[in-house]
């Protein structure tokens, strides 16, 4: 793969949007600061210069109206991409996301089509404190009618974003702020990573680690380390959180008999609880240990690096979680 073209995660997003706009005149983008400025993370850089201010629209700081703009344009035939600068800000727009975008099709007896992509930036690790660092994916995944995507690599970012734009349902594309700069192979040509299909990042027989977003990288690093001890971890990145590819996770659980879920969101009511519940429903007799959950403690995201580094799961906590389900520590040792 070394001779393949590499792109940062942020430019993989940008390229997916650009290609979709080239292919389909009904695709447009709207959001705060995405035009001339290109978005606060540079995700929309250069698009307004290429496509004009009518297709890459700077909006007021009005999250409800930004989502409403997308819902109204989608239900009347366009294919909008609307951006909420930080995932935390979606709380300002929850009515339009939860009560409108997600439900119009169903409430209208199936007549509506909502080909809307909501893009946003989630995750911590930038000392951005409690209103700019959250991982709120569980809130979204709880809402019938939404699809939720959270890529971990530049390759998946481009392919999943392309899939979101083509999707005839409202999707939320969560970019991870700490992954924006990571490089990886990204083909220049158009391709799709289908929604709802997990990626087995690393095969293994001893324990399954389910992780998404930045935690995929943390989990993979731990898996590499444990491989040195002869412990083979299977790392699964669902990539799409709603719909969740539970079949791939359950198949892995049946093979390894031990599962740890890792996420940045708080543990209580996080998606790890759903994954654990479904594993016990589908693979109870295969389990040799309770499903482990490595997640954030039940507090707002703290500001100080001294606190935040203890908040977000890191390699040491993930490793401890894996060892706890492996029961490799002899009793009394």
């Amino acid at each position: 793969m070394s001779d393949e073209r590499k792109l940062p995660y942020v430019m993989a997003f940008n390229e997916a949007v650009r290609q979709a706009m080239e292919d389909d005149p009904n695709v447009f983008c709207a959001g705060e600061d995405i035009g001339a400025f290109g978005g606060v993370f540079g995700t929309f850089g250069g698009l307004q210069a290429k496509f004009g201010a009518e297709r890459v629209v700077d909006t007021p700081i009005s999250e409800q109206a930004i989502i409403g703009l997308g819902v109204g344009a989608a239900v009347t035939g366009l294919r909008p991409i609307v951006d909420l600068m930080f995932m935390d800000f979606m709380c300002v727009a929850m009515d339009q996301i939860v009560n409108q975008a997600a439900k119009l099709k169903y409430m209208f007896g199936g007549e509506a089509r909502i080909p809307l992509t909501i893009t946003t930036a989630g995750g911590g690790g930038l000392s951005a404190a409690a209103q700019h660092s959250q991982s709120l994916e569980a809130l979204l995944c709880h809402i019938p009618g939404l699809k939720v995507v959270h890529p971990a690599t530049p390759y998946d970012m481009k392919g999943l974003m392309a899939a979101c734009i083509r999707e005839d349902n409202p999707t939320v594309m969560i970019k991870h702020k700490r992954l924006l700069g990571i490089q990886g192979p990204v083909p220049e040509e158009r391709y799709i990573v289908p929604l709802g299909v997990a990626n087995v990042v690393r095969p293994g027989n001893d324990v399954t680690i389910v992780a998404w977003g930045r935690m995929v990288h943390e989990a993979t690093a731990v898996a590499e380390k444990l491989a040195g001890e002869g412990i083979q971890c299977e790392v699964i990145d669902p990539r799409t959180l709603q719909p969740l590819d539970i079949d791939t996770i359950v198949a892995s659980a049946k093979k390894t008999n031990r599962v740890v879920v890792v996420h940045e969101a708080v543990r209580f009511g996080g998606l790890g609880a759903e994954v654990a519940a479904q594993i016990q429903e589908h693979a109870f007799d295969y389990l040799d240990a309770p499903v482990g959950r490595i997640a954030a403690p039940f507090s707002p995201v703290p500001f100080s690096p001294a606190l935040e580094q203890h908040y977000i799961p890191d390699g040491a906590r993930i490793e401890a979680g894996i060892r706890s389900v492996l029961f490799r520590t002899p009793v009394g040792a």
Binding site: A65, G68, L69, G72, A73, T76, Q100, L104, F108
Partner: peptide, 24 residues
């Protein structure tokens, strides 16, 4: 584009429809 059970929620959607109408 629908009656709406949330007071005020129709206006942002109308803005989206108006945007699409101008766009087309």
């Amino acid at each position: 584009l629908g009656a709406n059970g949330i007071v005020g929620a129709g206006s942002p959607i109308a803005v989206g429809a108006a945007f699409a109408n101008k766009y087309r």
